[in-house]
Write a protein that binds this DNA or RNA. Structure first.
Lengths: 203, 203
DNA sequence: CCTACCGATCGGTAGG
DNA sequence: CCTACCGATCGGTAGG
């Protein structure tokens, strides 16, 4: 299902790869067609234009996101340390395909209105759930009262995407270089410490 | 000093702007030359090639960074809430020119080896100071022992750059939309909570 | 610093 | 799904 090998799907996958790696403007549709083994007019036949291909790639990314989200939130809800699971699942999502995070960052820079409009429609309901969860945790005294729920949630999304897309290179600025995994773990730890009211240690 | 208006400097400034906004591949040297009011061969005369212009732009960004760093660390060292000042100064640096953060993110995606080599040479000494400060704070019991200094520092750099470059758009995924300032403030709060050992409240 | 010119590559179309 | 062809734009050079 995820990897049908008809020409159109192959073109879509290859385009996602190359757009993520070199950017849309840095990729020729010729290169994508060649990699799949067809001619450029064939690609144009399937997607109408380079802009059409770009839109199809974005739709695919958003669809992937939307399909994965319920699973993420479910994992988070299934008892245990919720926050850790949620962030862990989010990282897992991006780690399965690091190109995805890069593509999102690129499109956020290149055409923010287009991508945010697509994403907003799909995941505002879910982020609203998260913000509400923070708020009720604060009301119950389990979460820090100083947290700004909306700012916190969008900050964590930014940070998770940024670490997934750029973490490997950002780590190179520090020595000894922390791996991607260490940075992800640190983000989870940081989020936890910032969110939870510390339990009193006894003794 | 910062804005000499000879042609070469004008071209450099305009290139920085357009590269940040549309990416190197999305910008023609023709458009840069036109914006400054000269012809394309004039630009090529000054920088040799588009690649030469790109390198000059990157060098300018790194020089800007390097010039600002001592001031940032000084502000941080001057008593008071050190962490807040340091992060605040870092955000101020990016806020003065939001294009800078975008350019860094783009080049980190397009040619990570080139940019990290440049940055690493300039700021590894400074990040080493920060890591050491975290370590000694841990030894004195003022900072959380669970923090991984290198991972924490590189995570904060990633997060600060990401919020500066993409925060405005990432905020649009949450409702009501938190402003850039709220996300910056939240990052400072989060960093603080994750780093400092909470003081016992009395009474 | 400009005019004039270059080959290469781009995205896209016609027609089958 | 391909061959053949298109105009436009790209970065860069020659020569002054």
């Amino acid at each position: 299902m995820n990897h049908p090998d008809d020409i159109r799907s192959q073109l879509l996958r290859e385009a996602t790869r190359q757009f993520a790696a070199h950017g849309v403007d840095g990729t020729s549709i010729q290169a994508i067609a060649e990699a799949v083994g067809v001619t450029r007019p064939t690609l144009v036949y399937h997607f109408g234009s380079k802009a059409g291909l770009r839109a199809a790639v974005l739709e695919g990314v958003v669809a992937h996101w939307r399909a994965a989200l319920p699973g993420l939130l479910l994992a988070a809800a299934s008892g245990g340390p919720r926050l850790d699971r949620l962030l862990g699942a989010l990282f897992g999502f991006f780690q399965d395909d690091p190109n995805l995070a890069r593509l999102i960052v690129r499109e956020l820079l290149d055409q923010p209105e287009v991508l945010t409009a697509l994403l907003r429609a799909q995941l505002t309901p879910w982020t609203a759930v998260l913000c509400e969860a923070v708020r009720s945790g604060q009301a119950e005294g389990q979460l820090q009262p100083g947290v700004d729920p909306e700012a916190f949630v969008s900050l964590m999304i930014s940070a998770a995407v940024a670490v997934s897309a750029l973490g490997q290179h950002a780590g190179a600025l520090v020595s000894p270089e922390p791996g991607l995994h260490a940075q992800q773990a640190e983000l989870v730890r940081v989020a936890r410490a910032a969110l939870l009211v510390p339990r009193r240690k006894e003794g």
